[in-house]
Simulated scan of single mutants.
Amino acid sequence: MGMSVTISAAAAEDAEQILKLQYLAFQREAELYGNYLIQPLTQSLDSLKAELAADTVLVARLGGEVVGTVRGNVDGDGTGRIAKLCVHPRLQGHGLGARLLRAVEEALAGHDGTVRFRLHSGHRSESNLRLYRKAGYLAVGGRTASDGVQLVILEKDAKDPTEFAVSA
């Protein structure tokens, strides 16, 4: 009767679905801040395609529909940078965001030299901040994004990927 959601690497042909999902999922954030110029809403398809080619981009699928996505990369100092975690509004609150977060952490931990994970969220985004705290992230600072939104920067130490399977 019901289908299960699967998480896998995104393919180039997923770009348009990812961009549409991102636009839909970040509407609530834009409303929360009264700012519809936040980066996830203004990102171009070409910019997203470049991220697909260069970064780790995962998608959650329900049948053929992309219902969640997250991306990340590991920088030169061993920081796994995680960005644009989003879940279709109709599926939020069912643990899919946490599954995507664990999956991208596991993928980034597979890179040589990954020592920590870092991500950010708007300071008013309580549900996002709650998810990240529950996943072991701690606030380590803040900054103002180019769109004017106050961001909370969160980090946690990278762990052995086998630990992710145990906590899943």
Score class of each variant (00 low, 15 high):
M1A: 13
M1S: 14
M3Q: 15
S4H: 13
V5L: 05
I7F: 08
A11P: 04
A11Q: 15
A11R: 13
A15K: 03
E16L: 15
L19F: 03
L19V: 09
K20C: 13
K20D: 15
Q22A: 08
Y23I: 09
Y23S: 13
Y23H: 14
L24D: 09
A25D: 10
F26N: 03
R28S: 15
E29W: 02
Y33V: 05
G34F: 02
G34H: 05
Y36P: 05
Q39C: 00
Q39H: 04
L41T: 02
Q43Y: 05
Q43C: 05
L45V: 13
L45R: 12
D46M: 07
K49E: 14
E51F: 09
E51T: 07
L52I: 10
L52P: 03
L52V: 02
A54P: 07
D55M: 12
L58T: 10
V59G: 00
V59W: 00
A60N: 10
A60C: 10
R61T: 10
R61D: 11
R61N: 11
E65R: 14
V66L: 07
G72T: 03
D75H: 06
D77E: 14
G78K: 01
G78P: 01
G78M: 03
G78W: 02
G80P: 07
G80Q: 08
I82Y: 01
A83W: 12
K84T: 09
K84F: 02
L85N: 05
C86Y: 03
V87I: 11
H88M: 02
R90P: 01
Q92R: 10
Q92L: 07
H94S: 06
H94N: 09
L96P: 02
A98R: 14
A98P: 01
L100R: 03
L100H: 03
L101M: 14
L101Q: 07
L101H: 04
L101Y: 04
A103T: 12
V104W: 03
E105D: 06
A107S: 12
L108C: 04
A109L: 05
A109Y: 02
H111C: 11
T114M: 01
V115E: 12
L119Q: 00
L119K: 00
S121F: 01
G122Y: 01
H123S: 13
H123W: 10
R124Q: 14
R124E: 13
R124M: 09
R124G: 03
S125M: 14
L129W: 05
L129F: 05
L129I: 13
R133V: 06
K134N: 09
G136Y: 12
A139W: 01
A139P: 14
V140S: 14
V140A: 12
G141A: 05
G142I: 03
G142T: 08
A145D: 01
A145L: 00
S146R: 10
D147W: 00
D147R: 00
G148Q: 02
V149C: 02
Q150D: 12
L151P: 00
I153M: 07
E155Y: 07
K156W: 10
D157H: 08
A158P: 04
K159T: 13
D160Q: 01
D160C: 00
P161D: 01
P161A: 01
E163K: 09
E163R: 11
F164I: 12
F164M: 08
V166L: 10
V166D: 09
V166C: 04
S167H: 10
S167W: 08
A168Q: 12
A168P: 01
A168D: 13
